[in-house]
Design a protein around this nucleic acid. Structure first.
Lengths: 279, 279
DNA sequence: CGGGCGGTTGATCTGACTCAACAACGGTGG
DNA sequence: CCACCGTTGTTGAGTCAGATCAACCGCCCG
């Protein structure tokens, strides 16, 4: 389970020899990226306006994470011409809401998000947490409206990728076309894994899976897989895992007692990953 | 909930004015399609061999269900050139298994399937049931291997759609390209709905949702939405809904007591859909 | 006719929920 | 700087929905 997390695949798992270029080494140090302050002074209106700026996939530190590592220069150039804007989203604000018209998909650039689907009776289910390099909004293609809401867990930025333009790139580049199909298929696989988690696992196993999965995703991005900071609160974790917040808290305590993890508030250190996997 | 089933969307919900052509009227009669006998005499070997035959989307009774209703003649012709084979699958046999190499996606033509993901420790989760017109195998695009196994619930047939060829059609036709993205996105939405079901609903609500969803899907295909035959057994329903077979059975009994449904074995008559939706 | 499978129902048990109290934390204003 | 208050997290006690274990029925099929 530790080596091959079943749920929440690390993006799909496309041809991604990855780490044979300079990128990972450069981002390996910070357990957390420094929170960008550039938008801390922006007011709400400006906050919502996309910012045309250094949003170039060709020199983004996440190249090879949210996009295949081996695109040709021509393909990268086309991507750059489409993915030309980023947008800051403040902690607690929604990037998009359920039933918003769908125009773009997004890639988390910095920070983190949760996606939430809700029932008319008020019931909510968190369907995922997204960290840098991970996609948002793929569920909107189907009906032309977003099916869930994406909320920033901390001050964050996303790259905006207008879907119609992405589609036309994909008609020209076989590689890009296939990658987009892989991305969507990966989301399907991720959700199947979660159905397995929700349908068959005990509360203890759910939390263990969750921690190992997050750990693997952080590691895959060059952050530490052994120690990380959970930006989401216990209630959101519970809502994601299909259990109550008190149960989440109890399971954390149990793991601590059993020397599996060392939680200090939101900061989590995974002490015994094999033990966690055995739960 | 009844009018707009949250989980298991009826294929996505793409531009599908549907019923303004002759198809639905023609298939409206049989609550069950007559089970095709053509392959009942075939032996196992032949059974596995795809059959090149009248697999033409252009005159398939499911046109407008598994493919947009308003494709141009040219687009239909291209589709026909790719979707040229069907394959019978015997009850209990697998169309594909987890880790099989991915080459094609499939559309159920007759019969029905379940898809199952499994954990190395033997835990299983049914991730969906597919009826005629519904797609199978989209989860394989991501890694190039199937992520689940698809098992026929009765003697069935599928249309085989080689994915590489479908991709090249999609590079030529904007409509087809977008439809395929919609199809995959629809699967993502369907699974989100199921996560909501598994994460937040009581056993009673799960079964009610399940029945209403099946009902809507049958209805959308011209079958009766009020009375249908569950090909899957109680255990499979439970494994899909994340509850035990005894609980499924108890909930059926409860629904019968409350005059919501009239089950006689696998044949189900929905008596009070509004009541079911209120559960 | 017998055996096995699928389904139903009852009795008991238990993991997670609910309700409740309290501790720790972070931000705000005096 | 500290006092205060709302939010978030932890822990305990009691309850309940659904799991488990078990008996039994009906049906199909050899």
């Amino acid at each position: 389970m530790y080596a091959a997390p079943a749920c929440e695949a690390i993006l799909p798992a496309p041809p991604q020899p990855a780490s044979d270029d300079v990128e990972p080494a450069r981002v390996v140090v910070p357990v957390h990226p420094v929170e960008p302050v550039l938008h801390a002074t922006l007011n709400e209106a400006v906050n919502d306006a996309p910012k045309r700026a250094n949003a170039r996939c060709s020199n983004c530190s996440l190249r090879g994470v949210c996009v295949p590592a081996d695109l040709t220069a021509a393909e990268l150039e086309k991507l750059d011409s489409v993915v030309c804007t980023t947008r800051p989203v403040r902690r607690g604000d929604a990037l998009f809401r359920t039933h918003d018209a769908f125009h773009s998909i997004y890639a988390v650039k910095t920070g983190s998000f949760k996606t939430v689907v809700m029932h008319r009776d008020g019931r909510e289910q968190v369907t995922g947490f997204q960290i840098p390099g991970e996609p948002l909004g793929l569920d909107g293609v189907c009906s032309g409206r977003h099916n869930c809401e994406a909320v920033a867990l901390e001050d964050s930025t996303v790259c905006i990728i207008p879907f119609a333009q992405l589609e036309s790139i994909c008609r020209e580049s076989r590689r890009m076309q296939h990658y987009l199909y892989q991305l969507m298929s990966g989301e399907i696989v991720r959700e199947s894994g979660l159905m397995m988690l929700l349908g068959t696992m005990s509360a203890e196993q759910r939390l263990a899976s969750f921690l190992l999965n997050l750990s693997a995703r952080f590691r895959a991005r060059g952050y530490s897989g052994a120690e990380f900071n959970l930006k989401m609160k216990r209630e959101e974790i519970g809502c994601f895992l299909g259990i109550k917040l008190e149960t989440v808290s109890r399971m954390f305590s149990r793991f601590q007692r059993e020397r599996l993890v060392e939680p200090s508030g939101k900061q989590i250190r995974i002490v015994d990953p094999e033990g966690l996997a055995r739960v």
